[in-house]
Amino acid sequence: MRDALPLVWREIPERYNLIGSTCENCKQEFFPQRLICPNCRRKGNLVPKKMPDEGKIFSFTQVHSGAKGFENETPYTLAIVEMPNGVRVLGHIVDAQPEKIEIGTKVKAVFRRIFAEGEEGIIAYGFKFKVAD
């Protein structure tokens, strides 16, 4: 399981602080980070950019059969969150009763554990979303 370590480490800016990219040429923003702007190709220039930490639920689903490593957390809610900059991000919704989760519900990024590699491995942290007050 320690194979995940390089990836966990590399993804820290993205997972902790929602660091994506913005193209200096066409101004479009991307998350996760991209190497090449799909609009501008060689003319584009992508630089790191922090995404807004608030958005609205674009769509969501209740997961009853959890992915590997998340089996004990079911049922949990996964949502696609649309940020004010148009970027859509997939994330868990935490601390919410199901009836509070609807399309259009305002959510805010919070810092949580994503997974732990067994009892002795690394703990991966990152963003999840919580219904905003």
Binding site: E73, H92, I123, K128
Partner: peptide, 16 residues
């Protein structure tokens, strides 16, 4: 604390 919270996530939320 919830399933996915620990003293680090609490520290981050308070610090932010």
């Amino acid at each position: 604390a919830a399933w996915d919270e620990d003293s680090a996530t609490i520290a981050v939320q308070a610090s932010r």
